[in-house]
Design a protein around this nucleic acid. Structure first.
Ligand SMILES: [Mn+2]
Ligand SMILES: [Mn+2]
Ligand SMILES: [Mn+2]
Ligand SMILES: [Mn+2]
Lengths: 228, 228
DNA sequence: TAAATTTGTTAGACTAGCCTAACTTTACTT
DNA sequence: AAGTAAAGTTAGGCTAGTCTAACAAATTTA
């Protein structure tokens, strides 16, 4: 069993990618490089990281697997807080940071099921499935989506009450399917269909909905913005 | 902010009551008396326990308040796991033992609301309310309840599938109100009403349902069985 | 290519929480 | 009232995880 600290190191390495250095990881975790160095020796000993003196750090297969489990739990809990407990977009992370360390396979399974196996968390990040699979995904705004395509809402960019009310009114919420019926050249107003309900939305509204296209081919690399 | 360890010491003192000794607490926590001694000095320093060398240990007002918060969280999470995630009676404790340390006032409030402000956890123990109030309560089996009285189901004694199926069929679940309509002298079969639905139940069934009478006067002291 | 800068490592120290072993106080028994 | 047993304390030591300060390697820059 890994300690919470060890779990956090693995998760951080996962977010930093395979070319991480000691200082970089130290900054990311908010500790000193000396502390990271100590921990790397322990994690190497446990076969969770590949690490040689003065070399770049990377996760082993086992380390990566562990890291993904934690990311999965983090994002499932964020989704839970957002969807069931009306936490806002910006409140979920801090609590998920704690909840991700709860040890119970059954709890994770039930949580996943309870949320109806969500694909994205409230920040629009992909939730790894129970097998640890994590499809690469190309996010864009609803405004950028092609007419005729089907897509999945993965996040909002605006978190203000009026906007969110509007979102609710249109029948939208995260992990919902949307079909783009039309975009009018005149004022760029769009027609969309959600759960059989057709709505007309403004370009401003459309630009604040983040989606993943279900009809576009997958491509693109993950960026380095906010993680989790 | 208290560490998880400190929280566990406070909670244990709460369960042991105000005449606890060093060894007793050590056994309860599964550590050595020397460790307890160290921690007591720290907790005294923080004004959370009353403690003098060779004297009995007790919680201060502040310590008790903290302890009750943790018990509240523990029991709310147990109820959550039981009611929403189909954990059994005996599975909830271990996970609640972890969840009780999650720090988020909002989460606790939402959890309470989500569960509809439950009064009892799946073991039939009283859940302290948001103010830290914890009414003393006299538990007995449904079989022992007086005819004509109203009571609240607080726990089951049998956790087998056939029994639980029967419980469901009768429309019963924890925190539900039950009215005892009759008990037949011939075979001690009972008539009860749950949510307007009348059922006839066997004495064996009734003996496996733990209730609190809503019509009886409150009395009795808390025992020292399984806690939490 | 040599100096300067950045990056990474090591040694030594600290705290929290635990331990064992030895000791002291209190409580119980005869 | 002694003597023994039980309960409680202390000293010293261990590990995990952190730190600072000094040092070493690698990289950048002149
Ligand atoms: Mn997050
Ligand atoms: Mn997230
Ligand atoms: Mn419990
Ligand atoms: Mn309980």
């Amino acid at each position: 069993m890994l300690s919470q600290t060890e779990e956090n190191y693995l998760k951080s390495l996962f977010h930093l990618g395979d070319e991480a250095g000691t200082n970089e990881l130290a900054v990311f975790l908010g500790v000193k490089p000396a502390s990271v160095n100590d921990m790397l020796k322990k994690l190497k000993e446990k076969k969770l990281v590949n690490y040689e003196k003065y070399g770049k750090i990377s996760l082993t297969g086992e380390g990566r697997k562990k890291a993904i489990e934690i990311v999965r739990k983090h994002r499932l809990w964020e989704t839970f807080l957002y969807e069931k407990f009306a936490f806002t977009w910006d409140e979920v992370h801090e609590v998920a940071e704690q909840l991700e360390h709860i040890q119970s396979a059954k709890l994770v399974d039930k949580l996943d099921e309870f949320l109806n196996f969500p694909a994205y968390d409230p920040h629009g990040d992909v939730i790894p499935n129970a097998k640890g699979e994590m499809p690469e995904v190309h996010k864009k705004t609803l405004f950028e989506e092609e007419v005729g395509h089907n897509c999945t809402m993965v996040a909002v960019k605006d978190n203000s009450a009026p906007f969110l009310q509007y979102v609710t009114q249109v029948g939208l919420s995260i992990n919902n399917k949307i079909k783009v019926l039309a975009r009018h050249d005149y004022d760029q107003q769009m027609e969309i269909e959600v759960n059989g309900k057709v709505s007309s939305i403004s370009p401003r509204f459309a630009k604040n909905i983040v989606i993943v296209c279900n009809d576009c081919a997958k491509k693109k690399k993950a960026g380095k913005g906010r993680n989790n």
